[in-house]
Amino acid sequence: MRILVVVKQVPDSRASLSVLADGSGLDKAGVRFVCNPFDEFAAEQAVQLREKRSDVDEIVAVTIGPAEALQTLRTTLAMGADRGIQIVVDESVMFDELYLARAIAAAVTRDEQGYDLVLCGKQGIDNDAGDLGPALAEYLGLPHIGAIVELVVNESGDRANAKRQIEGGLEVVETGLPVLLTCEKGLVEPRYPSLPNIMKAKKKPVETVDAKTLPGMAEAAPRATFIGLSPPPAREACTIIEGTPEEMAKELVRVLREEAKVI
């Protein structure tokens, strides 16, 4: 069994982010970058599969992004992946996950062996979109199961059972392999890479490839154009809602729905 893990570098969720004055992007000064937490679930799931079964031949980690994303790839290798593929793209295309998925598909299909399992995070906490996984499945011609919280691969390694989180319940999905899975919080607890593994990861092979040189990618361009980034309406101090309890309830529900759009 061969497993592909897709990881992406994102700003640390604890970092306070600010936008460059001209709106052309994120002010990266002082911002620390980490492996997308959902992608860590994917990496952990892959490593756990290898620990539990004897038929996992290889775990390959692929990342796409600017050159600095190598750091994230190393983290994944430290968690237990065997080798890495780093696809270098210009930062300006990072918001078009369809384009990223195409590039990843182009990179991994160069290898004729193919993968039995492709594991991605449910979404990147940079774009908050979650487009990459399903789009990659489409480009690879694979079925996919999104946002899984439980995974069982059968003994012979040709079928899998997954539970996915949907509104109001859990969907139980059965699938044949190969398949692409996107991983949701709750699937596994990512490990803290041990120091020897971090050191070993520095020596694992990584192929670095420019997206433009991949088959079919020379002419490809993002379909969506990035216009700019703006800070959200300032999150001012807590808005205190006054009135009788009845009025409070009404007003609170109204603002949650109309201003915050969360219910």
Binding site: R223, F226, L229
Partner: peptide
């Protein structure tokens, strides 16, 4: 569309030609 855990809002342009798929946040 909100991005970076709601810490920023990204603005994109989808072209006049070709297919465009949009998912819209409820409410």
């Amino acid at each position: 569309r909100p991005s970076y855990c709601g810490k920023c809002i990204a603005e994109l342009e989808l072209p006049a030609d070709g297919l465009r798929v949009l998912s819209v946040r409820p409410n």
